[in-house]
Each structure stands twice: as C-alpha cells, then as structure tokens.
Design a protein around this nucleic acid. Structure first.
Length: 755
RNA sequence: UGGGGUAUCGCCAAGCGGUAAGGCAACGGUUUUUGGUAUCGUCAUUCGGGGGUUCGAAUCCCUCUACCCCAUCCA
C-alpha cells in the first residue's frame, strides 16, 4: 500500500482498526447520462484505489433512477473508462434499477410508519411551500392523509393511475429545518410515459437520488460512500433514512471530498454537452476534451491519469489544478516508455551539395538514459528536409541551430554548414543549399567541429507524408465561463508533415518526435496509406520561453503587499452581558478578551461562576473555562460533561501551586473529560507532578544536547527557531513532566554558555 | 439573510501544541548528439485578518473576512 494517506484513507483505516467493519466496500456510482471525464477518473481512482489498498471491494453501480436522461451508450462509456484505467469491479455491474422492488417496499414501510406521505401539490406550490434559505417552509395540507389513504394512493401511483406531476411521495421530516434538503424531501415521482433503458415501461414511478442512493449503498453492503462536496447537505437525509428504517448494521456512512477542476477546461456535464452538441468539438472523444474517451483517443496512458490523480491528493478544499500538472504526468510516463523518432512538422528542403550517393544509418530508438533496447535504420542522401524553425537568417541571441555562420549536426548523421538560401519572389526561403563535413559522421567524428545543437531531419525520397493534429488548450481563459472563452487555435491540422519511414511499423503506437513532443497514431483515422498523428503533449521547451521576451522579467518577485482586511461589526452586548463583562474585567481582573468571551456565553459563564465557589483564583479558572471547557461545549451539552466545575477548580489550583505544568494540565483535562475522574486521582496515579529540580533536569538536557550536536551548532549559528525543538525534546524525554519554564532557562543557559 | 463547508508558497498538498513535508510551476548550475531526460541548488521567519490561552500556536479559544454548496418532481 502506498504510504500516502489522505483523509478518506485515514477514516477507512480507523474503521478497519476499530473493528467497525471487517472489510471495506466502496462503490463508483455514476448516473449514465453523459461521458465520464477526468473528474470521474478522480472518483474512480479514489473508490477503486481505496478498495484495492485495503483489500476490499468496489462496485460499479449505474445510478439509473431518471429514465428521461439516461442511456445505455453512456453505460458502455463508463464501463470502458473504468476498464481502461485498469480497475475491476466486484461481481457484475450493479444498477439502482435492480433494486426498484426493494426500494418500493421500504417506501411503503415509511408510509406505514407515518414518516412518508403522498403530496398532491403542484410543482410551483411545492416550491413555494418549501420556503427559502432564510424563511421557514410550511407543510402541505396533504401531509395529514391517513396511512391507509397514502398507501392506496402510492399503490395507484405505481399502477399508473395518475399523470406525471399529479402526486409525489415525500418524507415527513421538518418543513422548518435550516437544512433545505430536510424540508420533506421528495422520494418518488411519477414518470408515466418515459422509457427506462433497462426496465422499459414496467415502472410508472421512479425513486429520487436522496431515497435511492443511501438504500442502494445499504443493499450492496457498502461501508464507505464517497461523494463530492455538493452532497454535504444530503448527508442528513442519508442518515435519516437508514436510521428511520432501522436497518440492521453494518450500515454505510457518507464522506465528501472536493470535485476536480483543471485550469483551461470545463468539467460540467452541461458545458461538455454544449460543446459536443454545438459542434465546437468533433465528438465526446475529441482530444481537446477532458473526457476519458478523449484522453484515450489523444494518446494519454491510463497510468498517467492515475499518477495525476495520485499527485493531486484528496481534500475538502475547492481547488483549481494547473493543467501543467496533468501534462507533467503524461510526459513523465511517456519519457520512460516510448521510442524516439524523427519527424519534420514544418519541412524546409535542404540540398547537401557536396554529398553524392546514399547510405543507411543505424539509430537507437531510445536515448542513453532510457534503459530500453531497439534501433532502426535511417536512409540518408543528398536531399533532406529539416524544420523551418531550425534555420534562421537573422538569429536571435542564444539561437543554437543552423545559421549562415553556425553549423549544426543532423542528428545521428553529419554536421552541415550553410551555403545559400534560395528564395521565391516574395523573399521567402524555399530551399537551403549546404555542405557537409565528410569526417563528421555521428560516432566516428574526427572533424573537431563543435556544434551547439543537433536537429532532426528526414531523407526526402523515403520520408512519409503525415497528417499531424496539434492540440492546444480548448479555452483561452484559466477559468472558462463557456463557449465565449474558446481558444480559436485549439486545433491546428498539419497536412504535410514528414516522418521517417520506420514510424509506420508496429513497434509502437506512441512516439516521441524528437525535439517536438509525444504523438499517437490516431486510433480511428490512422492507416498505412494515411498516417494521422495526434499530438499528446509537447516536450518542455525552455528555448521557446527564453526567446519570447514579452511577459519577461517584470513580474520578478513582485510580492503583493499584504491586503489590509477590514474587520466587520461585532454584535453589541446585551445589558446583562455587559454587566457580567464589567464584573469579570474590573472585579475579577480578567483580561478583556477572556471577560468578553465569558460574558457573551451564558453556559460558559455559569460554569465559570460555579467553579469560582471552590477556588478563588479567577484568572486560572477563567482561562481553563474559556479555552478547554469551551472546546468541549462546542460539541456537547453542558450536562454531558464528565467533570464538574469543582474539578476544574481543583485543576486550576494544582496549576497555581505549580504541582503540574500547564502542559500536563491539558493531558489531565483530556482524561477528565474522557473518563470522568477527579484530577487529583489522575495526577497521583500517573505520577504527573512536574519536575522543577535543576539537578534532575540537567543531566537530561545535557544528554539531549549531546545527541543533537548538529542542531546545537545550527542554533548557535543563529537559528533561534530551534530553541523550541530542544524544549520539546526535554519534555518528551520526561514524559511531559519537566517544568517547561525551568527547562527553558536551563537550556538557554547551556546553549549560550558552553562552546 | 438561515444552514452546511473551506482557507497553509503562483498551483495542488502534508501537518492535529515542540525544527513549516512533498509534487507541479518558476529560476540558476552540472550532464547531455533531444534547448528533452537526469541531477544539484534557490523558492513560506510564516499558515485568510485581529485578539486571547501557553515556556512554546498553522494546530486550542474568541472574533472578523473571503470563497463554495443548499430553495430541480436532476444526480
């Protein structure tokens, strides 16, 4: 298993360790209503990856609860994507529609329990009754129907008695819930005349996501149900359903992670569909799209996609991943795998005037640093082609290629030297005349000529013509809004590129065209008589960066000045709060902030006041209460606390008497709140009294200092930050019991004096 | 405006009271018959802002700010 542990893996690991589940079971549950994209790849990588890491299982489930949008084509595309990425789902592909009968039974059960009802409001009324995020909703009058009536109506809904929209099944939860999703969520709707791609016209009613999803997870024995952030609000329904139906454990729990966004592309189904249907791209597998089908067609490897998913991690923060990170993943993968070959994308004819005849040159497919074997033969003769970019009449500074007074090596072959440029009537160069050095042949070079670079070439008579499709980012904006941000140059088709003859063999489908990039034989259009290549990704090009001075040095290290943030209004205190505040501050001498916090929180201030009756040093108690007790109170009712104000008072007195350090006090507090024992007995039992005696501490300190002599040196050289490190080490060595104040002084002494 | 979330380098992202990981990008050097690769180095005195607690805070407390999600009979 990989060492890397994201928060989801941590949850799974803990659950397995605690024995909550014996085996982890996950699922990838797409709705088959669109082509999966790289965002799905992230989800696939998480769900299948976690199952694999923890030797569990992962189901592939088609969430087909909406007959109007779904289709079997999409099912195939999804299966294909999962397989292509190299995963195997557990058993057969699952379908939510397989569970319709069971789901129906549960719905009936809910009705019988009085927890669901048939509502007959129309769509607009339902919306209106739901209220808004700030105003409560109100319940429909139909919510009062008897169980019998609901049962009968629901049965009739199933039997196709009603038209779409006439009735709806809802859970009876809470129309005033601050969570909009809990305002009597819809469970079933009527879809009278739609044809479901699997169940046909068998059903007139279809379950909604919120109803079908948790229960399908339960049916399949899923343990961890991972989904994206936008379902956070739905989790409450998820739990409500499973609890209300009193389903036998083990039950699944839902956890959410952030959806993937990549710069310069779009990921939403709606926008993708718009691109395809609007003809802005050639189809779902247009290599410019972020769909898995597109990456596959473009030539990305499954490994590279998976590596990419690994590299971006999993978290809950909305983020926009730089495409450069994806590009790195594919380059990194292909670099190790793929043969190098020569291609000239923008051919310029070159005649080597002093060369006669022809020869064959053997050239390795792989550079010295790729540990793979294999070579091919390159024909060589008087007429060749090089790339137009590799000759310059008026070179920029730092240009390494052929110029009128700079020779260049033809890779694997000879060094050539410029003689003459032939131009057409427009002054464009159409042909180059050069001479070669006989004794400069690659591998047996005795010419002594130093060249700055070696360029690719193809021999004229044997080179094959190829179509090369060069892709750039689909959008010109980092965060595209829609088609208005389309990059007009996202596709460039080069019809008359030339490639060396060995390319048309079955050595590989992917190549590196030397000094250009990685290319893939188009799986659909490529044939021996019609060579078609897709550009997967270019090589890194530090020359292009250097030679393009536009956005140059200006941005150097220009740190944004820190924005000044304006603080908002703080709600004013009530009369009583203000009175308390003044008493705390003036009478009890608490500081402003502590008084403020205490005064504004009634539970807290009561707790504090009560503790004060047992011990009179207000400051220590107040600090304990405002910090540590407050933390617990965020999660628990005060009546659920396992310790009393008196215990806190005792703890405070122990701190004041310096029997224990504040650090240990935190530990003691922790035990108090977990086990509900008195501080005195905890300290006694564990022997937590702090060590303040220098004679006891000094040997420990010296030991640590000598063991960390490198850090001591660093500290003395000026790295003041390291001081905390030494204190930490001493505290660690004493089990936290060293009096940190004393330890601090002693360490400082030692560090500053002894050389 | 109610509720639910999230903020650590240009972009991802570790970190859970004791020396601010790592990757991408960027910038330099070395190697190189790919301006590729590899390799070495540089790149957060500071963790959204302000207070507080502590010997010690990215981590605990208070508070403010910004952004995302929720009012489909979609998922």
């Amino acid at each position: 298993m990989s060492k890397k542990r994201d928060f989801l893996r941590k949850i799974v690991e803990d659950d397995l360790k605690s024995g909550k589940y014996k085996e982890v079971v996950t699922r990838f549950p797409p709705e088959p209503n669109g082509y999966p994209h790289i965002g799905h790849a992230k989800s696939i990588s998480i769900n299948f990856g976690i199952a694999k890491d923890f030797s569990g299982r992962c189901n592939l489930r088609m969430d087909d609860t909406n007959p109007t949008t779904e289709d079997t084509d999409y099912v195939e595309a999804i299966k294909d994507a999962v397989e292509w990425l190299g995963f195997k789902w557990s058993e057969d592909v699952k379908y939510t529609s397989d569970y319709f009968e069971q789901l129906y039974t549960w719905a009936v059960e809910l009705i019988k329990m009085g927890r669901a009802y048939v509502d007959s409001l129309n769509e607009d009324e339902i919306k209106e009754y739901r209220g808004t995020v700030t105003t409560p909703g109100k319940r429909s009058k139909y919510a009062n129907r008897s169980v019998e009536e609901n049962l009968k109506l629901f049965e009739q809904m199933r039997d196709g008695v009603f038209r779409d929209g006439e009735h709806i099944l809802r859970a009876k939860i809470d129309m005033n819930s601050p969570n909009m999703k809990m305002r009597d969520p819809l469970l079933y709707r009527i879809r009278q005349n739609s044809h479901h791609f699997r169940t046909g016209s068998k059903w007139s009613i279809y379950p909604m996501y919120d109803f079908a999803h948790p229960l399908s997870d339960y049916i399949e024995g899923i343990t961890h149900s991972f989904c994206t952030l936008e379902f956070e609000n739905n989790r409450e329904i998820y739990d409500w359903l499973i609890d209300t139906l009193k389903l036998e454990p083990p039950r699944p729990y839902q956890y959410e992670f952030a959806r993937l966004n990549i710069s310069y592309t779009v990921m939403s189904k709606r926008k993708l569909l718009e691109l395809v249907e609007g003809g802005y791209v050639s189809g779902w597998d247009d290599p410019r799209l972020p769909t898995i089908a597109a990456y596959k067609r473009r030539g990305y490897t499954p490994e590279s996609i998976l590596n990419f998913c690994d590299s971006i991690g999993v978290s809950k923060a909305n983020s926009l991943v730089d495409v450069a990170q994806l590009e790195y993943a594919i380059r990194d993968d292909l670099n190790k795998k793929v043969p190098r070959v020569m291609a000239v994308l923008n051919p310029l004819k070159v005649v080597i005037e002093n060369y006669e005849g022809s020869e064959e040159i053997e050239a390795s497919y792989y550079p010295h640093d790729v540990p793979k074997e294999g070579s091919r033969v390159l024909p060589f003769a008087k007429e060749i082609y090089i790339d137009r970019d590799d000759f310059s009449e008026n070179p920029k500074k730092g240009y390494f290629r052929l110029t009128p007074n700079q020779p260049v090596r033809l890779k694997y072959a000879y060094i050539i030297e410029f003689k003459e440029a032939i131009k057409n009537s427009n002054g464009e160069i159409i042909e180059l005349r050069v001479n070669y050095y006989k004794n400069s042949k690659s591998g047996e070079d005795s010419s002594g000529i130093k060249v700055k670079s070696a360029i690719q070439w193809v021999e004229a008579s044997s080179a094959k013509k190829a179509e090369v499709r060069v892709y750039d980012r689909l959008f010109k904006e980092e965060l595209p809004r829609g088609i208005e941000d389309l990059n007009p140059d996202s596709l460039r088709v080069i019809k008359d590129a030339l490639v060396e003859p060995s390319v048309d063999s079955d050595i590989s489908d992917r190549f590196q065209f030397e000094r250009e990039g990685y290319f893939y034989k188009d799986p659909i259009d490529y044939s021996s008589s019609n060579l078609v290549f897709n550009k997967i990704v270019s090589l890194k090009d530090s020359w292009a960066k250097k030679s393009k001075p536009n956005e140059s040095k200006k941005e150097e290290r220009r740190r944004e000045p820190k924005k000044v943030q304006i603080d908002g209004e703080v709600t004013p205190m009530s009369k009583e709060e203000e009175a308390k505040f003044n008493r705390f501050k003036d009478e009890l001498k608490l500081n402003f902030e502590v008084s403020n916090t205490l005064a504004r929180d009634e539970v807290l201030s009561n707790f504090f006041l009560e503790a004060l009756e047992y011990y009179s040093r207000a400051v220590t108690i107040a600090n304990l209460v405002t910090n540590d007790v407050a933390r617990e109170l965020k999660q628990k009712e005060s009546s659920h606390l396992k310790y009393s104000p008196k215990d806190i008072a005792t703890l405070a007195s122990m701190i004041d008497k310096e029997r224990i350090s504040t650090k240990i006090a935190k530990d003691v507090f922790e035990i108090m709140s977990c086990e509900g024992r008195e501080p005195e007995s905890i300290v006694k039992e564990k022997g937590l009294e702090q060590i303040s005696n220098p004679d006891e501490l000094l040997p420990i300190i010296d030991d640590i200092l000598s063991k960390n002599s490198d850090n001591v040196k660093k500290y003395r050289d000026g790295n003041q930050k390291l001081f905390g490190f030494f204190v930490g080490q001493v505290l660690k060595a004493t089990g936290g019991k060293a009096n940190p104040k004393v330890a601090n002084e002693l360490i400082k002494d030692r560090l500053d004096s002894k050389d």
